[in-house]
Amino acid sequence: MLRAVTTERASQPRRISELCVAMLGVTGAGVSMVTSSGHHSIVCATDSVSARIEDLQLTLGEGPCVDAVRTGTPILVRDLDEPDDVAVERWPAFMEGAAKAGVRAVFAFPLHIGAIRVGALDLYRDRPGELGHERLSGALMAADAAALALLHLDLNDLDNLDHTAGTDADENPATQQLQVHQATGMVQVQLNVTTEQAFLMLRARAFSTGRPLVDVAIDVVERRLRFSTEDQ
């Protein structure tokens, strides 16, 4: 049962990965997941080389995606053959494996919302070169959507939240609206839940009341709205 639900929801990260390949001029894309317990796993990959990139990093515990998750910073490697551009000292085994697989450029994006860390989106290309400004924007937005999709995947007991995942075009959870993040911290304490759960609760309340997320967040911050365990 759980497996069936999980597999169906994994279709969203897969769609996001496929869109990246179609829109961002990359050869392949993959999403990996870090659960709250720190366990890494591969969610999806668009081709065998992408799967290899994910697998290498999972096995070796090193590479751009590992660093992206650890530091919360995108790691953009335009040319694996350019010594100044890569961390040969830091990723020796990954470099060797990636080169063998025909990878020339890797762009790893953390799936983070502040302290919430759910995984990484890895894009690769068989040619060197920068991603470029427009495509970088696209990749960051894809990462935002993938982060939301994975949040729901991780918390698969929250079935009623499924429909809210990653569909709000007018909303930019990763960076805008500081009040959303302040409210997340407050709700986390009010309900004694994880940051991930608090963020989803906030989104669920916005969805169920048909209000913009930021408005609900401001109500929480201004203490006009409190979440209580009885509501849930």
């Binding site: 919360g72 910073t73 502040g114 302040q182 911290g185 407050m186």
Partner: peptide
């Protein structure tokens, strides 16, 4: 992106402390 995400962590922490 590092600067932006760092700021979000601080906002979440402010919320925790403000509530607690």
């Amino acid at each position: 992106q590092h600067a932006l995400n760092s700021r979000i962590v601080v906002e979440q922490a402010k919320g925790v402390l403000a509530e607690r």
